[in-house]
Design a protein around this nucleic acid. Structure first.
Length: 454
RNA sequence: GAGGGCGUAGCUCAGUAGGUUAGAGCGACAGUUUGUGGCACUGUAGGUCGUGGGUUCGAGACCCAUCGUUCUCCCCA
């Protein structure tokens, strides 16, 4: 037997952590529900060809593939060897692997919509909170198994959906007590910039470079644009674009001056103005235009979102945006959508760092019943069950032993109350209730104990 | 995919220029004469020094490999 260990990049969660994580999940889930979104769960594994080719070349490498069963079947040995040779030359084959662990929640959702679009009522609003797996190299804040928390609306072009999603962000983070800035931009504006700087085909090059701005600075971004084949006047324009600042209104004015004649840009500006026209329900969060926001994923086509926590050094804790055609890859065209995602693991880290978890999240045992003999513990057990029926969290020490050990057990589990029923109390039909933090004790009748407010 | 750091007791770590029986703190367990804990004191258990080779009279220490872990870059949540 070797020492037990965990697969790389996975974690156990102890009771305290599970409770805190559930607090985050439940908070977000309740907001989704209030906004009329319905839950969806999909299998941990998908057919490999559902996933392959959807995340780019890099993404394909990071998909966890599942080995087929029955490869040791003697009768099919030669076939298995031939198939394995294909694997070695870099091709996937159903003979060796035909299933894989899901890599995100968006593609399984698209698969679901494509399979069921005849039955669904559009716009279809779903949320999904499940783990995903990536064969990435683990590092700080990055794991091979982690949760995603998505909500999307498909089958509607209405910008009202964007308004609702912005409100979901604001409401959820307000409930969690996390002070955030919700940044918005439009891919149409970025597309217009590309049109004006070397053509629409440069859009991906430009967005990738811009996306790195806050990380590497303007000079390095310019270097990268040079490498990607842009000329001096084009880079000059991008620099002007990136240096726009001020309030939302001031930014819009500056942008209109820069690219306002362009039809695509105008559409993007209209979208942003529409969104800003609705105010958020909460004082501690606000929408702010960030024209440098690009987001890496190429399928976004309209408004894009990104959420940053204020007061901590941490990457984005949420993101999303509009995409024109979610399901055409599964031969079901013309289903547009817009969605957002919460980065639960990072939200957890932010809340831990800022000490934002409420005390009440930790709902451990409230009362320990001492075990002081057969007859005594039997009487205690009866009382304990009555308290439990009133939703008081109780446990009884597992065996009769001296006081010292039972007190120490309560200490270690940070149980605030002890109920002590010894021979004397048993005879008199009462009990001692001790407050272990304050070291005070009172004698109660059994009836008084059952009515006590813990 | 590229490049660093670190693997010694359950946990956090010491272990000097290679030299007998590998240490501390915390934790665990037991006790300080069995109806009131947290403190204190005493004692006990627990390590193939990640693994496998190599150098040496001698390796926890040096070299190589391997595994694990962690960080940076790429990419992402």
């Amino acid at each position: 037997m070797s020492k037990p260990s965990l697969p790389q990049g996975t974690r156990d969660f102890n009771a305290e952590t599970v409770r805190k994580r559930n607090y985050i999940f439940n908070t977000i889930r309740s907001v989704f529900e209030v906004y009329g979104f319905q839950p969806l769960e999909t299998p941990a594994m998908e057919n490999l060809d559902t996933l392959m080719g959807k995340y780019g070349d890099e993404g394909d490498k990071l998909i966890f593939k599942i080995l087929n069963n029955g490869l040791d079947n003697e009768a099919k040995k030669q076939q298995a060897k031939d198939d394995f040779d294909k694997i070695l030359s870099g091709k996937n084959t159903k003979g060796i692997t035909e299933r894989a662990l899901r890599y995100d929640l968006t593609i399984p959702f698209a698969r679901y919509v494509a399979m069921n679009h005849g039955q669904l009522t559009f716009p279809f609003k779903r949320y999904q909170i499940q783990p995903v797996w990536r064969a990435d190299r683990p590092q700080r804040g990055r794991y091979r198994e982690f949760y995603q928390c998505d909500c999307d609306v498909v089958g509607s072009y209405s910008l009202l959906n964007e308004v609702e999603l912005a409100n979901i962000y604001a409401t959820a983070f307000e409930k969690l007590g996390v002070d955030v800035e919700i940044k918005i931009n439009s891919r149409k504006i970025l597309a217009a910039l590309a049109e004006l700087c070397g053509g629409a085909d440069k859009m991906i090059d430009i967005t990738i470079a811009i996306d790195k701005l806050d990380k590497i600075g303007i000079e390095k971004v310019k270097d990268e644009l040079v490498q990607r084949g842009l000329n001096e006047s084009q880079i000059d324009m991008i620099e002007k674009y990136l240096s726009i600042n001020g309030s939302n209104d001031e930014k819009l004015i500056a942008l209109k001056n820069l690219v306002g004649d362009n039809a695509t840009a105008k559409k993007g500006i209209d979208e942003i103005e529409y969104l800003l026209n609705y105010s958020l329900p909460t004082p501690n969060s606000r929408l702010s235009i960030d024209f440098t926001l690009a987001r890496g994923l190429n399928y976004y086509t309209g408004i894009i979102f990104e959420v940053k926590a204020k007061g901590v050094q941490m990457g984005s804790i949420g993101g999303g945006g509009r995409y024109d055609d979610l399901t055409s890859t599964f031969d079901v065209p013309n289903i547009p959508g817009v969605g957002i995602s919460f980065g639960v693991d990072r939200i957890y880290d932010v809340m831990e760092e800022l000490n934002l978890f409420p005390e009440t999240v930790q709902t451990a045992t409230q009362v320990l019943f001492f075990n002081l003999g057969d007859a005594e513990s039997k009487a205690a057990f009866g009382l304990m069950q009555q308290l439990r029926a009133k939703n008081v969290r109780c446990e009884m020490y597992h065996e009769q032993t001296k006081f010292d050990k039972q007190f120490k057990y309560a200490d270690k589990k940070q149980i605030p109350y002890a109920v002590i029923i010894g021979t004397k109390e048993l005879e008199e039909g009462n009990c001692n209730l001790k407050n272990l933090k304050e070291s005070t004790q009172q004698t109660l009748t059994n009836g008084q104990l059952l009515d006590f407010t813990f």
